[in-house]
Amino acid sequence: MAEVHIIGQILGAEGFKDRNVFCKWGIVAGSNWDLLEGTDQGQTQVDHPPEGEDAVWSHPIDVHYACRGLSGWPKLYFQVWHQDIHGRNDICGYGFCHVPTEAGCFDLDCVTWLPEGSVLERISAFFIGGGPRLKVEETVYNSGDRFRLRTRAGGTVHIQISVLLKDFARHNIRYR
């Protein structure tokens, strides 16, 4: 059984309309994959960056998987939320990225999007806040059923991770 370590940090985000953002994140892997150690989901701190600067989360990730097969290679997914001065949270981006299938250190940028409602919903969101959210959050990292979903662009989440593969060569898996 081969093993995969994913070690790194969710550095932060840029390009979101709102400054005070935080992120709910998680890692999904197929049924061939077992989480041995570490936490595979969490929530970052809320950053209040100075005007014009990017949000810093600096959230550590350290997970250890054992895999019986390669299918279902882990994916990182993110939900970026904005917190306003009253402590209310509003979604401002969904996104996912694959963990690279190569050993090494990587800087990943994850682009995000968010659902867009009808014109009426947009007008009401402008005045009282609260836009549409996804009912089925698996849509973020699954390829099915996105047709006719209307979305617009969010910002970018920056991730720095190292991937360590153990016993891949012994099982004749070419990883580079």
Partner: peptide, 16 residues
């Protein structure tokens, strides 16, 4: 605390 992911959801910070 900065090295662990626990308790982050109740933390508000300012980046400097």
């Amino acid at each position: 605390f900065p090295a662990s992911g626990e308790g982050r959801e109740v933390t508000r910070v300012r980046s400097t």
